[in-house]
Structure formats: C-alpha cells, structure tokens
Nucleic acid binder design. Structure first.
Ligand SMILES: [Zn+2]
Ligand SMILES: [Zn+2]
Length: 834
DNA sequence: AGCACGCCGACT
DNA sequence: GTCGGCGTGCTC
C-alpha cells in the first residue's frame, strides 16, 4: 500500500481514504471477529463503532465494526460490506474498549456486549422477502412441483410476501431451504429487500407530490367535473405535503387522493425521516437549590471535590446510614462536574427508579437530565440515547444499563445502593454495572461514588485495602435519631404465650399505638401469597410445582395455587389428587395472609398491600404512594417493593414479620443479604421528627446477624462476616465462577455435567491456581422444567479464572459438549447462586 | 446462537 | 424406496 500512497499523495492525504478491511463482530456468543472488505465508496463511512449490514452465513446480519486493517489471511474468502446505516459511530473508542473488557471478563461475545450497550430497537436482521414470479404461479397450478417446493409456492400465493424465517415458522419441519433455493434459481420466486420498516431510528412518512409532466389542458379536462378533487389538487400544487399533515387540514382526503393518483396527476413518495425528540412532551420541574450541608457531609464532599478537581480516576465508597444525606452529596458532585463541562451517570437499583427518584433529579437539574426507566418504548429509548450522545443532556439516571450512556465527557458516576443485586445482569452478558462503571471511569478519568448504608463485603473490603477512598456519614440529618430496634422471639410468643398469630403481641400493641396517634406503619414480609405450602391432611400429599422443585403458593384473592418461579398454576384444590381426602391444609403465610390477618386485628385501620400481585400496573403503584403521602393509609403491607425509592416521613413503626426468611436461603451470601435487607427496612422508620421503632420478629434469634441489626452495627457485622468468608475461602477472599448446566432430561444432564468435569480436568492441571468445587445439584434442582447442576471454579485472584474459562471456551471438546441440547452457562462473579 | 448438511430408523 | 429425526461443524 505504500507505493499507492506515494502516488496519490499529490492529490490528497491517502490515509483519510480509510482501510481496506473491517473487523466485524456479531451478536453471538463467539470469541471471534470476521473480516469484511470495504467497498471503495464506503471507505469514509466505515469506522470502528459503526454498524454494517453484511451477508453472514446464509442470511444478512447487522454487525459491529470493531477495528480496521489493511492485512488479512489470504486463505479466507472475504465478503464485502453491503451497507453502512450509521453516518457516525454508535460507539466511541472508549465504549469499544469497555465492551471488549466486559466480553473478556464475563466470557461473553463482544458483539453480545455491544448489543447490550446500544438502545434496543436498532434492527438486527435484514431478511429478504420472497414472492411468486416467473413460472411460479403455473408451477403451483399444475401441481407438478415437488411437495416441498409446492408448500413454499402455496404459502407465498396465499400470503403474498414472506421471509425465509416466516416460511420456516409456518411450514415447520416441512420447510426445506434447498427447495427455496431451487425455486429461486429457477426464477419461480424472487427475493427483494424488504420495505423499509419504521424503526426506532427512523419513521416513515409519505409525501404527496404533484406530477410535473402533465399539461394544463389535460389537468383541466380530468378535473372539469370533479370539484372536490380540483380543490385538493390546488392545495397540493402549493407545496409537497405529508399525509400526516394532509389529514390534519383535510380529514377524509383518502378517496379523493386515490382518484387523483389514478388519473396520474399526483404521486406519493415514501421517505425515511429521522425521528426527532419532542421537547414539549418532556417533563421539567422548576429547579430547586441545594440545602446546606452538615459538617459530616461537608467533610465527605471536600474529599470528593478534590478528586473531581484533579480530573483523574478515583473510586470512593460513601458509607452512610439511611437519611444521612448521601443524595445531596451526589447532587453536589454532579454539579461540580457540570461546572467543569463533565457529564454524570447515576445508577440506581431497578426497583428504586420511581417517579419520586426522577422528580428529585429533575427538580434539581431540569431538562439536563434524562431518566432511563423501564417504561420507555424502544423509540423513546433510542431518542434519549441520541440526546445523550449529542450532548443535549448532561445527566442520566437509570438502572444497570445506564452505565452504557454514550457520554463523551464523563466526569462522575454515582452508584446508589451499591450492594444491590439488580446491578448484576442475569442473562448474557452477565456483567455487574458497578464493576463495569469502575472500569469505564478509569478509562475516562472519571470519579466513581459508591453509595450505601450497607456496602457489599467486596466493596467495603476494597475500601479497607485502600483501593477506594472510604467516606462515612454516621449521623442522620436534623434531629432524627436512629430507630430503636426490638428483637421479638416468636418461639417464646408461640410456646409460652400461646400466641399463634403472625403478629406478636408487642407488634400488635405498637400498631395499635400508631393508629391512635395517627401515625403510619409498615409491615414487611418478603413472600407473596396466602399460604406457601399446601398439603393433604390425610396422606400428607404436597402440592408441588411440576416444573420446579418448589411447592406451590396459594393466592387467596385469585383462588389459585401458583409457582413463583415459572408461573404454573392450578385452581384451588377441593380434594387430594392422591387419596381424594377432602381436608386440605394451607400452611405458611405470605403478604396476602398477613393482610387478611391484620385486617381482622385492626378492622378500623386503613390497610393497603404492595407487592408484585397488587402493583401490576404502574398507576396502582403511584396511587398507593400518593395515598400514603396524603395520610390515607395507616398500615402498608408489602415486600421489598416498599423499601426502596420512596420516603414516607410519617412512618414511625416498621414490623419485620418473618426475619428468618432470607436467612434460610442456601447461599453463602444469605447473612449479608439479610443484614442489608433488615437494615434497609429498619431505616424506613422515623425519618421525620418522630423517632422510629422497629420490631424484628424471628424464630432463630440466636443467629449472629440479629444483634448487629439491632445495634445498627455495620462495622461489627462486616468484621464477623469477613471472618466467616475467610474461613470458608469465599469472596471477597476468593473469586468464583459458576458453570451452570441445565437440561430437560435428568440422566442426560447428569452425564453432561460429568463430561464437563472431565473436559475441565486437563485445564485444571494447567491452571493450578484454580480449584473446582462440585459439580453438585443446584439448590433449585428443577426450574422451569429443567434439571440444573452447578460446577464452581474458585481462585484467589480474577486473572487465572479468566484464563481457564477462556481456555475452556476455546476447547473443541467443550464446544462440542455445549452444542448439544444441554445448556452451559458461565457466570463470573455470580451473585445469585441458586 | 442459527442453520445447513449428512447419516441412520420407521413409515408409505 | 422416502421422510424426518438429530448429531456436527461453520459462519469472513
Ligand atoms: Zn391425600
Ligand atoms: Zn414452577
């Protein structure tokens, strides 16, 4: 290429004409790039970070350009890039680097990660559309065509146009691609590019144009006896008009227009129109100003401000109890970043992304904020994405995927409730948004603030080791005191006091007091339904889910037995399917039962319940919170949902109805989760001027987590739990990856797991730092009609883990194993180990 | 992940 | 004989 450069240097700088080949990745679990030639006319457009349409395998696919090169393996036949839909890259160099890191770290395909980093709604496949042509119709009529060809012809004649995929779906096993190709090469059917579809990126609009080549006499003649048509034609002559506009000025234009079209006087043209963001629909709030800082806040902010001023990467843990004013510190960091021309990403847990959260940021930053909530349509999502890329907003508030917000000048990343499990994606790519954010911030020289009242052990231990700056807020703002936590032993309640109710006497009394004083209460129970265990009194038959290894939960309001994992349900049973006994026992309790019982105890109280069953619709959700704020609810009963994203100043009592529930989960993190959950729930009490009271009802009060919760002693819990983890050699003292194996046939799945262990064996000998645990049956051995096994890999540091997993994925034996019916999934740094 | 190709049992 | 099952390997 050097020679050519010299020749052309006279006219132009040759390097700007671009490279010859592009490295392309697809949304596939492949550790591979594919090289395509770049046609001369696309050299300018093809840049790293653009999408390309190419033919790949049998069909056409969207790929992502991740690199350019002038050299390639001569043994591989290359195909050309067909189209470049983007005029500028969708991913910056920094975002390409980040997605690459995620792919390597979490063992996903680069293209899969890129897909996850882009807004949904950018189309992936561009399938050809087939229709009858040439001799096709005759071949169908004559009935001479081979059966498989006949079926395709028949389908096309009935449906008009179909893609290969649609035909496959319609004909099922009868579909044969060779037959399709035969018909195509014979010309009996032809393939065309599909009509451009309306997409997130574009909308289609039709414009009416007046034909210019028609003589005036001809026009007069054609319209002489059609007054209405003449009128419409005159309007159209003034200027081209879109059908959307036309329908506004002339409702019911349609028949007239088609007559004009028929007479050849006008034509319609279809345009791709880039979508625009409708500013009038945006909600803005009048900006409020910053409240003053407490001494503690000021000290923490000073340290963060110093990092910000340097403009270098830093990560800090902001450990602050509920109500200590973490949010205000976030806001001030964002403001400081904005002053320096930097943008900010605010990550919040999915469940905390409520209108109240949105309002807080909107009221402070007005229209410089984009809220990426789950209610957005693909189109809205894309428009917001583009506003971020184009610098029209400077702050993004969103859940996990907001870590990919395409800012070019990132200054601050806030991760609120850093310990929340929803930051880990539970499908591929299984990235952790907190960890991805830290990597991104390092690349972009940004500041990370990890906020939590109960940091994850990993984060807190990193802070302790000096990897993060450790900032603390120990006091609640104002006069508010920490709530008083009472531990209630439910065994004493039951055995000594003969109280078999869900509610202990203490809690009942406290609820009564609140009702008298007109204060509000929360009752927290992390389980839905009425009874979670339904059985036959005569023979002991238990109603289990046929697809999962869990029992079915009875839901009284719908009178159904429901599986909370797969949705399987039965009508309320009248007798035992085994012995026909007619006495069915409903044992265990959930929020529905709690609601019933609370209503019985407090018939005059205004009681509401908030869980997945009642909050199906967003409106009921918001309604509930409005009522709560208006003081129209006395007791709110609910699951996790009531603990996040909302402040209720008048709540002075919190009852944790069954605290042991989360401790029973068979996972090494269950203590940590319980501590976090209980602390968070307790934190809901007494945020205003009235001190709060918390009753924690438990059956296993000897569990060490309880005293720590009662005394708000995070530090003590941390020390205690770290000791346990060190003894067991679990994170943060080690790194884990779990290979999950699942299949429909029990025996086959078990065989596959053993084969996996065998395939791993030589790798384990090579990577001696890696230890294998198991394989063992997963805690939820059956889930959604599949048998599940776990094989855990453990190391001291991450790198050897990444190396062995990469080697495993590259191993032909593993690929062969994984191509079968049994599914293998790799989860690095797993959070949910059930 | 799809998707095509190819090699074996059980139907007309 | 053919139809259709699934195991195997590839995609620039
Ligand atoms: Zn029975
Ligand atoms: Zn189930």
């Amino acid at each position: 290429m050097a020679a050519r450069s010299k020749q052309t240097a006279f006219f132009d700088e040759p390097s700007s004409t671009g490279s010859l080949f592009a490295e392309v990745v697809f949304n596939l679990p492949l550790d591979q790039t594919f090289t395509y030639t770049i046609p001369e006319n696309l050299r300018e457009q093809v840049q790293p970070g653009v999408r390309v349409f190419v033919s790949f395998g049998t069909g056409r696919q969207t790929g992502y350009v991740v690199g350019l090169t002038d050299q390639t393996d001569p043994d591989i036949k290359l195909k050309p890039i067909l189209e470049v839909p983007d005029s500028e890259p969708l991913l910056s160099a920094s975002m390409l680097e980040l997605t690459r890191w995620i792919a390597d770290y979490y063992q996903a395909g680069w293209g899969e990660v890129i897909r996850a980093a882009l807004p949904a709604g950018l189309e992936e496949e561009i399938p050809e559309v087939f229709h009858l042509a040439g001799q096709g119709a005759e071949a169908l009529e004559s009935g001479n065509a081979p059966k498989k060809e006949f079926l395709i012809l028949d389908a096309l004649s009935k449906k008009g146009k179909r893609t290969a995929k649609q035909l496959r779906k319609q004909l099922g096993a009868q579909f044969n691609s060779a037959a399709l190709n035969n018909l195509r090469s014979r010309g009996d059917i032809v393939a065309t590019l599909p009509n451009a579809k309306s997409s997130a990126q574009y909308k289609l609009q039709k414009t009416v144009l007046v034909k210019q080549d028609v003589l005036q006499e001809e026009i007069d003649r054609l319209l002489s006896r059609a007054k209405k048509q003449k009128e419409l034609f005159a309007l159209l002559q003034k200027k081209p008009i879109t059908l959307a506009e036309l329908s506004k000025v002339w409702p019911g234009y349609s028949p007239l227009l088609s007559q004009l079209k028929q007479k050849g006087l006008v034509e319609t043209r279809q345009d791709k129109q880039e979508r625009t963001w409708d500013a009038s629909r945006a909600r803005t709030e009048s900006p409020t100003t910053a409240p003053p800082f407490t001494i503690e806040q000021e000290a923490a902010y000073q340290k963060l401000g110093k990092h910000l001023a340097k403009g270098k990467f830093a990560c800090s843990l902001l450990e602050g109890v509920t109500g200590s004013g973490k949010t205000e510190i976030y806001m001030r960091c964002i403001e400081k970043g904005l002053e320096r021309g930097k943008s900010a990403i605010v990550l919040v847990p999915e469940i905390a992304l409520t209108p109240q959260t949105a309002y807080r940021f909107r009221s402070r930053f007005g229209n410089r904020v984009a809220i990426l909530h789950s209610g957005l349509t693909n189109i809205e999502r894309f428009l917001e994405w583009r506003r971020i890329r184009d610098g029209e907003v400077s702050i993004v508030v969103g859940a996990r995927s907001a870590v990919f917000a395409p800012f070019t000048q990132l200054g601050v990343v806030i991760i609120d409730e850093e310990h929340d499990g929803s930051y880990k994606q539970d499908t591929s790519p299984r990235y952790h948004a907190r960890d991805a954010a830290i990597v991104r911030a390092r690349q972009d020289n940004a500041l990370v603030v990890l906020g939590s009242a109960t940091p994850s052990l990993e984060t807190r231990s990193n802070a302790q080791q000096g990897k993060y700056t450790h900032l603390k807020l120990d006091k609640r703002i104002g006069k508010t005191l920490m709530p008083v936590v009472h531990l209630v032993d439910m065994r004493i309640e039951r055995d000594k006091r003969k109280n078999f109710s869900i509610l202990s006497r203490q809690l009942q009394r406290a609820l009564g007091e609140r009702l008298e004083r007109g204060e509000q209460s929360f009752l927290f129970l992390n389980r839905r339904g009425t009874a979670n265990y339904v059985l036959c009194k005569a023979c002991g038959f238990v109603f289990d889910c046929p697809n999962c290894s869990v029992s079915l939960t009875f839901h009284g309001t719908t009178r159904k037995l429901l599986c909370h994992y797969c949705g399987f349900n039965l009508p309320q049973p009248m007798d035992c399917p085994d012995c026909k006994g007619e006495v069915i026992r409903f044992s265990g309790f959930g929020t529905q039962k709690l609601e019933d019982e609370t209503r019985k105890r407090f018939p005059d109280a205004r009681i509401a319940r908030l869980d997945r069953d009642t909050a199906r619709k967003r409106s009921t959700f918001e309604d509930m919170f409005d009522k709560m704020n208006a003081g129209e609810i006395d007791i709110l009963i609910g699951t996790q949902m009531i603990t996040k994203g909302h402040d209720f100043p008048n709540v002075t009592l919190v009852g944790v109805v069954y605290a042991d529930l989360s401790l029973h989960v068979p996972d090494f993190r269950s203590s940590e989760r319980s501590f976090q959950l209980l602390t968070q729930v307790a934190g809901r009490a007494g945020r205003g001027e009235i001190p709060g009271e918390v009753f924690v009802q438990a059956h296993q009060l000897e569990h060490p987590v309880y005293p720590f919760v009662a005394r708000h002693n995070y530090k003590g819990f941390f020390a205690h739990e770290m000791e346990m983890r060190e003894r067991l050699h679990f994170p943060p003292y080690s790194r884990l990856a779990v290979v999950e194996v699942e299949g429909e046939i029990e025996r086959d799945t078990e065989v596959a797991v053993q084969q996996l262990a065998e395939v791993l064996h030589p790798h384990l000998e090579e990577h001696i730092q890696v230890e294998m645990l198991g394989p063992a049956r997963a805690a939820l051995y059956r889930l959604q009609d599949r048998y599940r096994w776990h094989l855990i890999l453990r190391t001291d540091t991450h790198q050897p883990l990444q190396d062995i997993l990469k080697a495993l994925r590259a191993d032909k034996a593993f690929q062969k194993l994984a191509s079968g019916k049994i599914k293998f999934t790799i989860d690095v740094d797993p959070l949910n180990m059930l």
